[in-house]
């Protein structure tokens, strides 16, 4: 187990290095952000002076080495747009994004698993139809569209929730629903088919004949049998939510990383794009690592096969 862990950690570190290299050169390929930052009226000399001051005129490899050395010191460079260390900006925004993604996922899990188990245990019932509908619509309604509709109905017409920002404790509800809707659909489908699959197994029939409630049976056996699949889907969904919150955060003006990425991309804020891409990749890699470890703990066979 320790050996396995060590190998996976080392692998992850190399992965991170690869990400760093790819992101750096990709971002650099887009050209020089001077035109976006210096006023249109500025004379040519000022454009040059600016380029010089920002170090855009140095050879790429020098810029890369500088960047790499910085990271080892925990310095991701300064955001061009905000004139502030990129790391500082990211750390400021990170909690909001984690919070939103976590609430969205928890909401999705709780609703999806409840509906999935009840529906799956009673195929054809109203709840089952709801589950099937959720499963389909979750993957067919664009989340930014849903976000706009949610604002119109629940903020403007009903006045139940704020329309933007993160001012009160209920501010998270609308963005979390919009963000988690797709995941909810996926999880409902997964849970439902897991329940259906084991429904007719002998031990379930036995349990049912003993008078154990449908839901309890479903819950217990689904978790035992489908926990591996669930762990992996949840981890995938979580990293998707972390990286995919860009539309939702923009619409709800949620002070998170997605919002920041949208701006950084818009303004070709190199250091910031790099740093955000790096951080999101870091979390995705860390999540994968954790999932793999969880897998190895749940099912020891996996360790040997990989």
């Amino acid at each position: 187990m320790q050996r396995y862990l060590l190998t996976r950690v080392v692998q992850s570190l190399f992965l991170l290095l690869g990400v760093l290299i790819v992101v750096f050169f990709l971002v650099r390929l887009t050209g020089d952000p001077t035109s976006l930052m210096v006023a249109k009226e500025a004379p040519a000399e000022q454009r040059e002076a600016f380029r010089e001051a920002m170090g855009f005129n140095r050879p790429l490899i020098v810029q890369f080495l500088d960047f790499g050395a910085g990271i080892l010191r925990g310095d991701f460079g300064d955001s061009l747009h905000f004139r502030q260390p990129a790391l500082e900006l990211i750390l400021e925004r990170l909690p909001a994004t984690f919070y939103l993604a976590t609430v969205a996922l928890l909401l999705a899990i709780v609703i999806a698993i409840t509906i999935g188990i009840i529906g799956g245990s009673n195929p054809g019932s109203a709840i089952d139809s709801l589950g099937r509908a959720l499963g389909l619509f979750g993957q067919t309604i664009p989340n930014f569209w849903l976000a706009l509709i949610l604002i119109l109905i629940f903020a403007v017409n009903l006045g139940w929730f704020p329309s933007f920002g993160r001012d009160t404790s209920i501010s998270v509800v609308l963005p979390a629903v919009a963000l988690g809707f797709g995941s909810m659909g996926q999880l409902v489908r997964l849970t439902r088919s897991a329940v259906l699959e084991i429904r007719n197994e002998d031990y379930i029939r036995t349990a049912r004949s003993k008078g154990i409630s449908q839901f309890k049976i479903g819950a217990r056996h689904v978790f035992r049998n489908a926990s591996l699949a669930l762990v992996s889907v949840i981890s995938i969904q979580y990293s998707y939510l972390l990286g995919g919150s860009i539309y939702i955060e923009t619409i709800f003006s949620w002070p998170g990383l997605g919002n920041l990425l949208q701006q950084a991309v818009d303004g070709r804020d190199f250091p910031l794009v790099q740093a955000i891409a790096f951080f999101i990749s870091f979390f995705v890699i860390a999540l994968t690592l954790l999932t793999d470890v969880a897998y190895a703990l749940i099912d020891p066979r996996i360790r040997y096969s990989s």
């Binding site: 604002i151 006045g159 933007f164």
Partner: peptide, 14 residues
């Protein structure tokens, strides 16, 4: 800061 137009409209209404 509210970049989305539709959200600015909603927020002034509420």
């Amino acid at each position: 800061p509210i970049p989305e137009e539709a959200t600015r409209i909603a927020a002034v209404q509420t």
